[in-house]
Each structure stands twice: as C-alpha cells, then as structure tokens.
C-alpha cells in the first residue's frame, strides 16, 4: 500500500517539478511548485513525520509561495513581454546545467552505496521527539539559526524603510 503511494507521490512530484520549468506562464509555474510542495509533504507523512508535513505546508505552501504568487501577479508577466535571450547565453546555460547534472550524478552515485539504513524509528518525526532533539542535542545550532532569521528580518526592514 505505502509502496504504491510512494510511487504515485514520486511520479507526481517529479512531474510537477518538471512542469515548473516547462510552463509558459509564470503563474502556472508557481502553482505547479505549490503542488510539488504538497507531494513532498505527502512523502513526509509516509515517513510518519506529520509535524514536518504540517509545518512544510504552513510555511512553504501557505506563506512563502503566497508571496511568490503575489509578486508574479503584480508584475503581470506573460509570454508576449518575455525577453528573448541571445543564442550564446542559451548555449552557455545548457552547458552549465549539464555540468551540474554530471557533478550531481557523480556525487549521488558514490553516496547511494555508502548510506546504511539504521533501524528506522517511526516516532522520529513526532513533535515530542523533534522538540527534544532540537532543544537538547542541537540547542546551539538551533538558536544560531534563529539569530540568522532575526538578522534577515532586520535587513528586510532596513531595505523596506524609505528613509533611515
């Protein structure tokens, strides 16, 4: 049962991820990206990590992507006003993208073998265990990342202010 679900979800996430790149309209791309996030949340639920799934939906699909959609709708981009890049830039981007692909394949090929699967703890994604790990074992990195967010917030306020 969960095997079939995994294959369906994987197919949907790869399909929607491809459609993000292939869609002609930017708004459609964003909507496919949101759908992609949903399928990834589905993967989290398959791994019994409901908390991560819910937070993923709330933060990424519910807040960040709304802002994406917001900006793209305001800019009103469409196929007619799309700038046409010169051929040399298109060629260069194909080459760089291909090189990135080669590097990624090389990395994953060596990594896939070395990953041993330790006994899977199905309670790992629950709120309680996640909270214990975050506030016990990884207290300092957690607080440092919180500081990082704070500095980002201050930066955004600085940019947003008209006169400082």
């Amino acid at each position: 049962m969960s095997n079939y679900l995994f294959y369906i979800l994987s197919f949907l996430s790869i399909f929607s991820a491809l459609m993000v790149v292939l869609s002609r309209k930017p708004v459609h791309s964003v909507l496919y990206l949101i759908f992609c996030f949903f399928t990834i949340a589905g993967h989290y639920i398959l791994l019994n990590a409901q908390f991560l799934a819910a937070v993923h939906i709330i933060v990424y699909a519910g807040a960040i992507m709304v802002l994406f959609l917001f900006v793209i709708m305001l800019l009103n981009l469409n196929a007619e006003t799309e700038p046409h890049k010169p051929l040399i830039i298109k060629g260069a981007s194909v080459v760089t993208g291909g090189m990135l692909l080669v590097v990624l394949i090389a990395t994953f090929k060596s990594a896939a073998m070395s990953v041993s699967s330790p006994e899977f703890n199905s309670d790992l994604g629950m709120v309680e265990s996640l909270g214990k790990v975050l506030y016990d074992q990884y207290m300092l990195p957690f607080e440092v990342s919180a500081l990082l967010f704070l500095s980002a917030m201050v930066g955004a306020t600085m940019i947003g202010k008209k006169e400082i």
Binding site: F51, A54, V55, I57, I58, A61, G62, A63, V66
Partner: peptide, 11 residues
C-alpha cells in the same frame, strides 16, 4: 497545525 495548514491554503 492541520487546521492552520488548511486555512493557509484557503487563500
């Protein structure tokens, strides 16, 4: 969180 997630999609 489920309620919250669904509400945030409603927009």
């Amino acid at each position: 969180l489920y309620i919250f997630g669904v509400v945030s999609i409603g927009v």
